[in-house]
């Protein structure tokens, strides 16, 4: 149970927490924040497992993947915020209406 595995489990924990919050919270801004936490969790899993490389140097490929992921996450978040504000201006409330028919 070295440090890398500790951080990997934390990443998994963050992902599960985000998943729970995503399912429970109704406010759209809270859902977007939950996605950010889930994204950080997934990247932490990736980055922590890269730390297992021998002799104190971490594997650079997952680091590049995480940086790409962070930039993708921030652009998705920015777009989601703009869309949320548009939903609020059209429907008057920052929630998704209840699904009328399945």
């Amino acid at each position: 149970m070295n440090a890398a595995m500790l951080y990997a489990l934390t990443g998994a924990g963050l992902f599960a927490l985000g998943l729970y919050a995503l399912a429970v919270q109704a406010h759209l801004l809270r859902k977007i924040i939950a996605f950010n936490v889930m994204g950080s969790g997934a990247f932490l899993v990736l980055g922590a497992l890269a730390h297992r490389a021998p002799d104190q140097v971490a594997d650079p490929v997952p680091h590049a993947m995480v940086i790409t992921g962070i930039v993708v996450a921030v652009s998705a978040t920015a777009f989601a915020l703009v869309l949320m504000l548009r939903v609020q201006s059209e429907t008057g409330q920052p929630h998704l209406p209840e699904q009328p028919s399945d």
Binding site: L28, F35, F79, A80, L83, M84, R86, V87, L96, P97
Partner: peptide
């Protein structure tokens, strides 16, 4: 359309 797009985004 906007609520459909938001649900699709999530």
């Amino acid at each position: 359309a906007l609520t459909g797009a938001m649900r699709y985004l999530l």
